[in-house]
Design a protein around this nucleic acid. Structure first.
Lengths: 358, 358
DNA sequence: TTTTCATATGAGACCGGTCTCTTTTGGATT
DNA sequence: AATCCAAAAGAGACCGGTCTCATATGAAAA
């Protein structure tokens, strides 16, 4: 039934050696580009290799050398332009440093993340970049550290874990964005974010286990409290994972009697859905609802009105984390670093004075 | 200086065997999940493995079994939402079939593509999915076929190459889009596409070596000619690789005295740039310029006006190609298939009657 | 009790490279 | 011509699994 017909046996160094009438060791030296060989022999071997169409088996090489020349990357969702830009940054740096990238999607699911890390480790990647979906369940990441393989975290720090990390200044960014809204007189500000608490209701900041999400909420709350806004937490909405969920949340939020006058979206996918719902309800931006989103996705400047955003240097985030990892793989032994890249608030036209009828 | 301190030696089957006081072969049988072992011994071995924190070395396993459990994917640009959606489709299917994905970016550069294919082959991926950037330079792909490794092409067919392929009906799609414009009275229609001819000028259809690009241009020209439009090829613009280049082309095109009354963009990234330029020049869509783009990127429905698009089933494209590949890897021996997925023209509001002053 | 045969275990080759250690080679030195 | 030594080549172990083949075990059959 399921018979796998045998692969045509590939040409090995031994074959080449035989053809070139030299020892396996010598052929290996030429083909592997190490040790010392005379020019004449080198030429003979290369010729034989070409004639036989020899292709090195990177697997075998990896097994003896211990390094595989690959770095594993585990992200939440490649379809999210945030991650695809970051991955591009990682891939570019990786390539120029001579590494390949194995990509795995966790779908923000902790079990999938654990499985991915496990197989990546089994594949003996030389280093690992992870966007941890939970800051609490970190046993698999601690395993990585214990195994001695370099690990770097992207976009989300984990307090107890001493590894290289690159994030943005989430707290400050959220604070600044919120302050902008507060400054324009808004007092009913909603914050919509993807997250994973069992019940999608925001109860307590300690229920939030994703570092970036938590920091942003803290920033949001801090700014609100400074403005003496009552119960700002009441307008925090978790669970905007995927279009449908986001849509539902937005409809609910905007359909209510005392709907918020401003919305802060935690990524461009969420913002897009919110934007659509606002339109659908025949509300105006910014007259009826002001909107700010994290991540300056390419389309945010072409909508009417263009959207005010918290610009995260996404590509550079990927570059930075890859650079840290590469340095670590080369044997850098200093203390793990936590790089925090700054965000910029780009003011466009989606924010206006809050209607004064409150 | 650059001393790589030795990896802490990992726990092997032999170590586990010793600890469990059984032979290496028996331990391997338990750990590898093959052959036949008694329950009592199995338990002993598993316990020992747990105690030692044994982790299988997938590399070693791959070397003897010949399969690595990975599929290699070479795409033009992960940052392009077209590809990231397709990759997501691939990754999902791959995962559910038990495969990992190694991702490589070619940047639409044929040399990078060749290099990527080569290293992927060296890493002994079990199968390969490629978005070939040139339909003419295919030596590296023929190599793959010759090596006996399953190969599947995504989005772009290669005439002479008998391998599984998944594309959309590019020709018909371009024709339909063009006809829509023609039907509204447009006679100066520009087609902007990313491509790679040495001089970015369109001379002859035979200079176009990327299958999808070529088919679309053929469709475009066919529709134009049927409408007896003079020199439609004169408004074809190649070389829209990257924002800057696209912007330049768009500015040039729209700044000219007899600017086109309609533009057809070959992907959403190009369309976005064109959209921005149109705005910048204070022109109106669709009063001054009508716009249609390939790929229903998520933002195309939220601009003002929303954009008429050729909707390609991108995620399903990825799914389909991955499915074909998986089937092939399982040993399917039938003739290679070329699956053509249908596109849909989604009419929104970016197309209107051509100004009659022509 | 002896034979039989499936099941369980062990010994060791093998995959395709790298790498250490030994032996050979040949030009420079005396 | 004899000596020396670095460069070049060879022999074979090794990485960590899988897998074949031989052997041991034990319950059922004769």
């Amino acid at each position: 039934m399921d018979e796998h017909f045998p692969r045509k046996p590939s040409v090995t160094v031994a074959d080449v050696a035989r053809a070139a009438k030299v020892s396996k060791a010598t052929a290996a030296r030429v083909l592997g580009g190490y040790g010392t060989v005379s020019d004449s022999v080198r030429e003979t071997v290369l010729q034989a290799a070409r004639a036989l169409d020899y292709r090195p088996n990177e697997l075998a090489r990896s097994m003896t050398t211990g390094r595989s020349g690959t770095i594993g990357v585990v992200v939440g969702d490649i379809e999210n332009p945030f991650f695809s830009a970051a991955v591009r940054g990682i891939a570019d740096i990786a390539r120029s440093a001579g590494f390949n990238v194995i990509l795995a999607n966790s779908g923000e699911d902790i079990e999938a993340e654990k499985a991915a890390v496990k197989t990546l480790l089994a594949k003996r990647v030389d280093g690992l970049i992870v966007t941890p979906s939970r800051a609490r369940e970190t046993s698999h990441l601690e395993d990585v550290v214990r195994s001695g393989r370099p690990l770097a975290l992207l976009d989300r720090a984990i307090p107890g874990l001493a590894v290289d990390t690159v994030t943005v200044d989430d707290r400050e960014a959220a604070e600044a964005a919120t302050e902008l809204l507060v400054g324009r007189g808004h007092r009913r500000i909603a914050y919509i974010t993807a997250c994973d608490t069992p019940e999608h209701r925001f109860r307590n900041i300690d229920d939030i286990h994703t570092a970036s999400v938590r920091l942003r909420i803290e920033g949001f709350l801090a700014a609100c409290e400074r403005a003496r806004i009552l119960d700002p937490a009441g307008l925090i909405r978790l669970g905007a994972n995927g279009r449908a969920e986001t849509r539902k949340l937005a409809l609910e939020l905007l359909g209510s009697r005392d709907r918020p006058t401003a919305i802060l979206a935690s990524d461009s996918l969420i913002a897009l859905e919110v934007f659509k719902v606002i339109r659908e309800l025949a509300l105006g931006i910014p007259e009826d609802v002001s909107l700010i989103t994290f991540h300056d996705a390419d389309w945010t400047s072409v909508t009417t009105p263009p959207i005010t955003v918290v610009d995260q240097p996404v590509y550079r985030l990927g570059e930075a984390v890859a650079k840290l990892l590469v340095a670590r793989m080369k044997g850098a032994a200093e203390e793990p670093r936590h790089v925090v890249l700054p965000t910029t608030l780009i003011s466009r036209a989606s924010v206006s004075e809050a209607a004064s009828d409150t």
